[in-house]
Computed example of a mutant assay.
Amino acid sequence: MGEDIMVKVIGLGDNVVDKYEHIRTMYPGGNALNFAVYAKRLGVSSAFLGAFGSDKESEHVQNTIHELGLDISKCRHFNGENGCARVTLENGDRVFLGSNEGGVLRENGLNLTQDDLEYIKNFDLLHAGLYGYTEPELDKVKALNIPISFDFSDDFTMEEVERIAPKVNFSFFSCSHLNADEILSLIIKTYKLGSKIVLATMGEKGALLYDGDKFYKQKPELVEAIDTMGAGDSFITAFLVNYISKTKENKLEKGTIIKESLNEAAIFSAKTCLIEGSFGYGKKY
């Protein structure tokens, strides 16, 4: 996939370490970094632009990224705490216990420069999310005419949706906590606000996507999850990478591309549930 036409994507925003308190092990993660790592695993060229702290947690994330060969040449470095979350597992399901709300990223922001924007212009897609402190940057990126995808996660407010959805092409929501009517009305509202593709993941009920013409439902691939951390991020990444690659190849009609991309996303997401942390690389602390 993507061999003929090189696709380049970038994750903008958060990197964290997820500290699993029950085993005293930290794993690299964060929505924007997960996206970049999963995209690379799916065979496309990917980069991450975020902020690193000056602690051992940051060092572990950066060492892992160097090992994976991701481009982080434009990242910020600040004195202070790297983004960090505290987590435990209950029967394979990740449970968040608290976080430092992004650490140095929250304190300093990204403040994209003209140089950064020239760099970002070369990508086929930029992915950001609710925890990446990227909202002040979205207008600058939108002006570059690059498709933007945004992960609203599960604790979005309707005010945030109303502000952000008009600026992005793809909107993603985690909706396990909502009923069917609430999900439908959220999807249609977000589409009307300007997002061209809106996707809600619903845990074991699968996913529902709307493209303005029709709804597409995707059943999950069921596995005995070792760790659900990263399941949503990997679903989103595989969907986007497949969708962008196949659209660029321009050989299939849109409905077929969406169906194939959703199917690939379900398969890839299931595999992620068999890995500890978002993508492995655990280190004792």
Rank of each mutant, 00 (worst) to 15 (best):
D227H: 09
L252R: 08
V223E: 14
I226W: 07
Y243N: 03
V241H: 08
T228W: 09
A238T: 06
T237I: 03
A225W: 08
S234R: 02
G232W: 01
D233T: 07
K248A: 04
E253V: 14
I257R: 00
I244Y: 02
T256R: 10
A225Q: 07
T237L: 03
K259R: 13
I226R: 14
I244H: 01
G232F: 01
S245T: 15
E260G: 06
V241M: 04
V223F: 12
F239C: 00
G232Q: 01
M229G: 08
S234T: 10
K248M: 03
T256M: 11
E249Y: 08
A231W: 06
L222C: 11
A225D: 09
E249I: 09
L240F: 04
T237E: 02
V223H: 10
T228F: 08
K248V: 01
F239S: 00
K246Y: 12
M229V: 15
G230A: 12
E224G: 07
K246E: 15
S245R: 11
K248C: 00
L222E: 14
I244V: 15
G255L: 06
K251N: 11
G255K: 12
E249S: 11
K248R: 13
F239H: 01
N242Q: 07
I236L: 08
N250A: 12
M229C: 15
G255C: 10
I257F: 01
I244M: 05
F235Q: 05
K246G: 07
L252D: 12
I226S: 11
T237D: 02
E224I: 12
I236T: 10
A225R: 06
G232D: 03
L252M: 15
G232M: 02
T228R: 01
A225P: 15
D233F: 05
D227Q: 12
V241Q: 07
F235N: 07
E260T: 12
E224L: 11
M229H: 09
K254R: 14
E260Q: 13
I258M: 05
K246M: 15
I226G: 09
I244C: 01
I226E: 12
E253M: 13
I226Y: 14
F235H: 06
T247H: 04
L252W: 09
E253T: 13
I258R: 02
V241F: 08
A231V: 13
E224D: 14
L252T: 08
I258T: 05
K259D: 12
D227S: 11
L240V: 09
K251P: 05
S245Q: 10
T247F: 03
K259C: 05
I244G: 01
K254N: 15
A225F: 09
E224C: 07
I236W: 01
Y243W: 03
E260Y: 09
T237N: 02
A238S: 15
G232N: 01
M229D: 08
K259V: 11
V241R: 04
I226A: 13
I258P: 01
I244L: 04
E224V: 12
G230I: 12
L252G: 03
T256K: 14
G230K: 06
V223K: 14
V223R: 14
A231M: 10
S234I: 02
E224Y: 10
E253Y: 14
D227W: 09
E224H: 10
V223S: 13
L240M: 07
I236G: 03
A231D: 10
D227K: 08
L240Y: 04
A238P: 06
E249F: 05
K246I: 06
M229P: 10
A231F: 04
